[in-house]
Design a protein around this nucleic acid. Sequence first.
DNA 1: AGTTGTGTATATAAACACTATATACAATAT
DNA 2: ATATTGTATATAGTGTTTATATACACAACT
Lengths: 123, 123
Amino acid sequence: MHILISNSSKEPIYNQIKDQIKKMVLSGELKEGDVLPSMRQLAKDLHISVITTKRAYEELEKEGYIYSIIGKGSFIAEQNMEMIKEKKLTAIEEKLTEVIANSKEIGLSLKELKEWMTILYEE
Amino acid sequence: MHILISNSSKEPIYNQIKDQIKKMVLSGELKEGDVLPSMRQLAKDLHISVITTKRAYEELEKEGYIYSIIGKGSFIAEQNMEMIKEKKLTAIEEKLTEVIANSKEIGLSLKELKEWMTILYEE
DNA sequence: AGTTGTGTATATAAACACTATATACAATAT
DNA sequence: ATATTGTATATAGTGTTTATATACACAACT
């Protein structure tokens, strides 16, 4: 369970924490039931305030990645992969719809759009 | 040339002005060379500061909708379709990049993405 | 030339949002 | 009981956004 933060990064600390934990969940490095460092411990390790780790964990909980229990600790939540996927798919569809609307406005063909996407995908 | 502002709106004043002028340009109500109210006159009419009208006009100029000449006034610019296209292309690229990032996270392949896009495009 | 009407630049104020914090409170484990 | 866990409240520091006053620069018109 290694979390690093960069003070020079423009990303806020709580976000750096969130991203790293999310990544570990998505990669399978962390699995359902796994214990996370306590807010206080993590705060001590990173030399930041408890409130900041609290914020990171709180948002991760809202997004369904972890859950916390007073007196016990914080844990990786049931991997509701389907749910996460669903959310991302919805987001993708929304953006894709906008992209297509914009493309049609300026007469960008489906073929051109696909070619562009291929280039971006492979970068 | 009627511009109205709402003080209760959450939209900033300079943006309300911008949007209304843009709309008139895009609808054809205002055409190349048409004279806009002077910054001072508009400020007086709307009971706001010149700096605010200045900001609206300034941004409209940056976006290519109008141009201003010291001592003369502000005018509707040549309708530069190319420029508008360029902007849309940039917007498309940004969204497409996000779409691809999201797709990779959940393992959506380029092929699947293309198929999806085809469906959305043809709807 | 002088006056008036244009747009412009600088420095500032006020409101708001965001990030991070200290400190005290509440529940659980031992 | 005591230590360890998460939680709630109130606050400080920072940066961004919105709007302003005031003085400057250029052009048109007597």
